[in-house]
Amino acid sequence: MKIQVVKDYTTNFEGDVYTIDLSRKFEGFETGDLICYACPFSPAMPLQLELAIRADGSLIFRSWRFVDGEGNHYLHTRELSEADCKGIQTPFIPTEAQTDTVNGLFSGRIKFEGLKLAVGSTLQRICPIDLQREEKLIGEKIYLA
């Protein structure tokens, strides 16, 4: 089954229509995947996208699923940063490529299949944003709210 989202002032994707394939297959798991999720069309549609950022920085589709409530518009992870770890939990150590991908998602330099994803705080704790570098790469000032 497919759903089409028509562009309006709340959506941020390339083109006028974004097509979501609810029957799309999971693209696999590799050790070192940084698993992330967001509801990019929230609050209008509580549909959560789950993806992985591979060790090489590539983005891999995992799933679309409906969630209860609005869902979070920002891209988050359940992985823990070193600052979040207590006791015997092991922190997630990102590769440089994963950090670059998170930075690119933050600035809009990188999109997931035409969809711009806003990077949330849990992901930023694991992969800190280098704002000055991103501004140089995209050639414009990034304004923070």
Rank of each mutant, 00 (worst) to 15 (best):
F66P: 00
N103P: 01
F66T: 12
H73N: 06
Y143E: 13
I3C: 05
P46D: 13
G69P: 09
L59D: 01
S121M: 12
A55K: 12
N12R: 08
R54G: 08
D68A: 14
M1A: 14
A38E: 11
V119W: 00
I110F: 03
M45R: 11
V119P: 09
Y18W: 07
E70K: 13
R62Q: 09
S58F: 04
L123G: 07
K111T: 12
K2R: 14
E27I: 00
K25E: 15
D8A: 06
L105G: 05
N103W: 04
L75E: 01
V102Y: 03
G114L: 05
G114P: 04
N72S: 14
L115N: 04
K7I: 02
T31C: 03
R109I: 01
D130W: 05
S121D: 10
I138R: 15
I126W: 02
F66W: 15
T19G: 05
A97T: 00
P46F: 10
E30K: 08
V67R: 09
E134S: 00
A55S: 10
G32W: 03
I110T: 15
K25V: 15
I88G: 12
I20K: 06
T11W: 03
K136E: 15
L22H: 08
E140K: 15
R54Y: 04
R62F: 05
I35L: 14
V119I: 06
P40C: 00
V5A: 12
R54N: 04
S107C: 07
S63T: 00
L49Y: 09
P91H: 01
S121Q: 14
L80N: 07
I53D: 02
C127N: 00
Q48L: 11
G87A: 08
I138L: 07
Y74S: 08
R78W: 08
F66I: 06
M45P: 02
P46K: 10
T11S: 10
T90P: 05
R133N: 01
L115I: 11
R62K: 15
F13Y: 04
D130R: 11
G57I: 04
D56E: 01
A83V: 09
F41S: 08
T10D: 11
R109H: 01
Y74G: 03
G108D: 09
C36Q: 06
W64K: 02
P91K: 04
P91A: 06
V5E: 12
A83C: 03
G104K: 00
F92V: 02
T10P: 03
S107Q: 09
A97W: 06
I138A: 06
E70M: 12
E27C: 01
Y37F: 15
I60K: 05
K2Q: 14
H76R: 14
V67N: 04
K111Q: 13
N12E: 09
A38P: 12
K141P: 04
E30D: 12
F112V: 00
H73V: 10
K86W: 08
F106R: 01
R24G: 10
E27R: 10
Q89H: 12
T19M: 05
I35C: 02
L117I: 04
G108W: 13
V17Y: 05
F61W: 00
D8R: 11
D100F: 11
R62E: 03
